[in-house]
Nucleic acid binder design. Sequence first.
DNA 1: TATATAATTAGACAAATATCTAATTAATTA
DNA 2: TAATTAATTAGATATTTGTCTAATTATATA
Lengths: 185, 185
Amino acid sequence: MSTETELIDFFKALAEPKRLKIAGILAQRPHAVEELASLLSLSEATVSHHLSLLARAGLVRARADGHYSIYELQKDRLENMAERLLAKETLPAVAADVDMHAYDRAVLRNFSGPDGRLKALPVQRKKFEVVLRHAVTLFKPGKRYTEKEVNKLLARIHEDTASLRRGLIEIKLMQRANGEYWLAS
Amino acid sequence: MSTETELIDFFKALAEPKRLKIAGILAQRPHAVEELASLLSLSEATVSHHLSLLARAGLVRARADGHYSIYELQKDRLENMAERLLAKETLPAVAADVDMHAYDRAVLRNFSGPDGRLKALPVQRKKFEVVLRHAVTLFKPGKRYTEKEVNKLLARIHEDTASLRRGLIEIKLMQRANGEYWLAS
DNA sequence: TATATAATTAGACAAATATCTAATTAATTA
DNA sequence: TAATTAATTAGATATTTGTCTAATTATATA
């Protein structure tokens, strides 16, 4: 089971008032289904259903005793999940499958004309920076460019090469000295 | 806000796949609503709604920047909640308002006849013990009783005083020596 | 000042789910 | 072996909630 579904199952299990209360009761001592139903004013069928969700999350386990099912809280599991929440890598891992460039692509698509060049440079800073991150891929690491060469390359994106050039320097994607330009490393 | 609603809000916030993913993305760096919508293929309205639930749980906070709302994850809050899950008193506190005697009362009511005495002694061990816990309240701490006195008191509950007497000794609610009975302390 | 843009809110709708009753299963007692 | 009992499962229903579009608000640009 993936970390993501494991976390979802865990949170879902405890995100419902009656289930959280079941966990609270079981934290005191194990109980049979019948008892829980009485304590919570719910039918046994409903309690059984809640317990199955808690069990799927690994938070409770049933022990058979006669025709009773005695459920007990799995404190280990609770502790383990809490510790994983404290770990720095857990949450970012959940977003591992998100395509972090989807926004950039959407912005570029929005501003692109049929010829592949931009119809206009975005006015919004955030979107202009998307264009700059795109523009910077035209240049090769280590190579030095004259301003004329820079302009020629940037013209493939948009005719306002001066704004693009200035932007690239400003957010430090490129550097300049003595009329030469190169990629910041 | 009570601990219970605080926990429910926290779990609910993270119990939904898209919201968990938002938390995962914000764990990497802050993002605007528009960006999140792009990354998750959701409308901005939907993302806005998700963010409001995460905010209610204290997990994210918005910072205004131009007409953008830049949302950032509140790691402190996440850590604080995880630590509370690790604390032994948190879960039991959630069940503090549960009437722990509801089951006992239900069992006694079920077996009681119109005269207040039991129609029958429960056969199920678990329920028989409920009756014993009830029976033991007939006796006073410190006082010594003859078997005859014990029987007279127990008869108020059910005529099968022998079974009741034996049960009380067996689960150590009462003690016996030299034909005298008294409450276990 | 008027227009454009990002975000939020309102309202509607569809999907998920908490709950119940009834039927079934598993275990115990008569 | 038959009857009783606790639990689970199945099926139905009502509530909750995730999502969208449209309307509104707030901010920035022309």
